[in-house]
């Protein structure tokens, strides 16, 4: 069990003692219920442009940034995506349970070096879905929100409305099986209890039992929303290819028209790439401007891989990924 520490203290310690060059954490954003990533460069970071600053000013800036660090239920982004950017530098990153699985995934695929990483684990009960809060309150979420113990409270059309924090978290968080980081050097909080969850959600169970026509209607509906902005891919920590098939033009795998089949091809191919690798952090769903429910399809493949090969992505960096291996006894019934 890693040592429990204070977030700001450990950040200051790591940066000033030169144990890391870059610290990736969260800061409060200008909108209510929102947080933004905060990247702090240490004094020893030779690649940082701020090197040209006077040492005093630099130390001041670092101290100010460290003081701005936060961690609470607003911190929804998966910061692991930034690790690709700071690949060869000593980096500390704040990870929730789900994000820690992304780190394990990258270690498994040899994309990051454990020696260069300091992992600050943050036990997490779930992060708040701002769009969902706005929907529950029937109001614009950009106004000021008060926090009253276990409730959010804000004024809307002349009256005060209240929403329970537990009702306002993302679906992915409600279905989360790993609230506590699976890999960490330090923890910035006490471990949280893990609720007992069914293997499949009611929605998934119903969809699996539905007719193919029904499932197709659902898929078509979701895919018709997609505008091929590729935000899901850009935000996914497992999508790190330098040249993505979606950007290739020779051959052009994904057409650039508004025909739903183009979005379908993009998502089906991406789903195939993520089969057995997606940890279900929900970054794609949070980043989608059109509210496409990609979670459903990733969840299905994840449960297939778990059932078939007993493998959960991002739990153990020593295990070989199932789609990169085989066994003689694999299912052969679907082949003539």
């Amino acid at each position: 069990m890693p040592k429990q520490v204070d977030l700001k203290t450990i950040a200051r310690d790591l940066l000033t003692k030169g144990k890391v060059e870059v610290f990736i954490g969260y800061q409060a954003a200008s909108l209510p219920l929102a947080a933004a990533p905060l990247i702090i460069h240490g004094a020893k970071d030779s690649v940082d442009a701020s090197q040209s600053m006077a040492p005093d000013a630099e130390r001041d800036m670092m101290a100010r940034k460290v003081a701005a660090l936060i961690f609470d239920d607003r911190c929804e982004m998966n910061l692991v995506n930034y690790l690709h950017k700071f690949k060869d530098r000593k980096t500390a990153v704040v990870v929730k349970g789900c994000d820690s699985r992304s780190v394990v995934g990258l270690l498994q695929e040899k994309q990051v070096d454990r020696k260069n990483l300091v992992i600050i684990g943050a036990p997490c009960r779930g992060v708040v879905d701002r769009r969902h809060v706005a929907k529950l309150m029937g109001c614009d979420a950009s106004r000021e929100v008060d926090r009253e113990g276990e409730h959010f409270r804000f004024q809307c059309a002349g009256s005060w409305k209240r929403v329970k924090v537990a009702d306002a978290i993302y679906t992915a968080c409600r279905e989360c099986q790993v609230h506590n980081p699976v890999i960490a050097d330090y923890w910035i909080g006490a471990p949280v209890p893990q609720p007992d969850l069914p293997e499949l959600t009611a929605e998934m169970e119903a969809l699996r039992k539905a007719s193919p026509d029904h499932r197709w209607t659902r898929f078509h509906k979701e895919m018709s929303k997609c505008i091929l902005c590729y935000a899901c891919r850009n935000l996914c920590p497992a999508c790190y290819c330098k040249t993505c098939f979606a950007d290739a033009c020779k051959p052009k795998w994904v057409g650039r028209t508004d025909d739903p089949s183009d979005a379908m091809l993009f998502h089906l191919q991406r789903l195939m790439h993520l089969g057995g690798r997606c940890t279900g952090c929900g970054a794609c769903v949070r980043g989608c401007p059109m509210n496409v429910d990609l979670r459903l399809y990733n969840d299905h493949l994840r449960s297939h891989v778990k059932q078939e090969y007993g493998f959960m992505a991002g739990m153990d960096s020593a295990v070989h990924p199932p789609l990169a291996m085989y066994s003689m006894g694999d299912c052969n019934e679907f082949i003539r």
Binding site: L207, R208, P212, D213, H214, R215, W216, T217, R218, F219, M264, L268, L271, M272, G275, G276, Y297, H300, L301, H304, V305, E308, P322, L323, M325, Y326, D330, C331, N332, F334, I335, R336
Partner: peptide
């Protein structure tokens, strides 16, 4: 085989008719 099993699982789930994509040895 593992790859095609995953593809088949995915196509079934999105509702592409069973039999559009087939495999044989």
């Amino acid at each position: 085989r593992r790859k095609f099993r995953l593809l088949k699982e995915l196509l079934d789930f999105v509702g592409v008719e069973d039999g559009r994509v087939q495999f044989s040895w």
